[in-house]
Design a protein around this nucleic acid. Structure first.
Lengths: 135, 135
DNA sequence: AGTTGACCTGGAGTGCGCTCCAGAATGCAG
DNA sequence: CTGCATTCTGGAGCGCACTCCAGGTCAACT
């Protein structure tokens, strides 16, 4: 369970246990199961005993999901993106690009307003500082 | 209900109806009531008939709340800030400054990670573009 | 063989931040 | 005076994204 190094117990490819995957990706075990259940992950490989084995690709995909999630994309949109990607169909690539570009613009806009709001906060700090200074 | 101009119906000071306030601040009527109820707004002035009259100060304070909210401050923290501000006590000013500074750092950090994540998204877009180009 | 710990499933529960509703009162235009 | 819009209250409901739980299986070590 110690993190990082993949299990190679079954075959030539590297696999990660759910616990390792949670540690590597920052998602909780429950969230990993949840993401699989709702279709963000497709079917995850299983051992003979039915336990999940995450591949390097899965880890990479989880990284993308984490990025989208943390930049504020709703699960519903991530689901759309996942479905496009899962189809693997090259015809879906323009759609995937469009989706990511829209999100990129969203993130850009968010940073702009965030900067403005930060200025507002800093103004307020300065205002309070001046109050103290002028006492 | 038309927006912007305050009612001066009662006294020399400008007041805004809940509807006007909602329009000016971007909060819904329900949210304004909710914020008052949980203590983010203190007691709002009322007309003889019991309707709320928001002052210019209230509007300003709502602007601050909006800024904090949209930059990701949880309601619980905003509540703490509101209580400090409501006491009006000058002794609370250092605490208010500390609270805002902590939040300022939080916003700063968030923008940094946001930029990194945006790069990740843009990399993915480029990757998809190259896929298309190399077909 | 026994104990410990990671993992399984299905489904219920949680926390946050609103949002909606019913039923009643008020305000204002024609 | 009529009618329609606005606002009032208390409390229920909602959407999102998890998170927790019970009861069981399986693996690995001693």
């Amino acid at each position: 369970m110690t993190a990082g190094r993949p299990d190679v117990t079954l075959g030539p490819v590297s696999f990660y246990s759910p616990g390792q995957t949670a540690e590597k990706t920052g998602f909780s075990l429950d969230t990993l199961r949840y993401y699989e259940k709702i279709g963000l992950l497709g079917e995850i490989d299983r051992t003979a005993a039915g336990r999940r084995r995450f591949s390097e690709d899965d880890i990479g995909w989880l990284g993308m999901l984490r990025c989208l999630r943390e930049t504020g994309m709703p699960i519903a949109d991530m689901l759309r993106f996942s479905e496009l990607a899962r189809d693997g169909d090259d015809e879906t690539i323009p759609d995937r690009i469009a989706l990511l570009e829209a999100h990129d613009r969203y993130v850009e806009e968010r940073m702009v307003t965030l900067r403005a709001q930060q200025r507002h906060i800093q103004d307020k700090i300065r205002y309070y500082r001046d109050l103290v200074a002028g006492t």
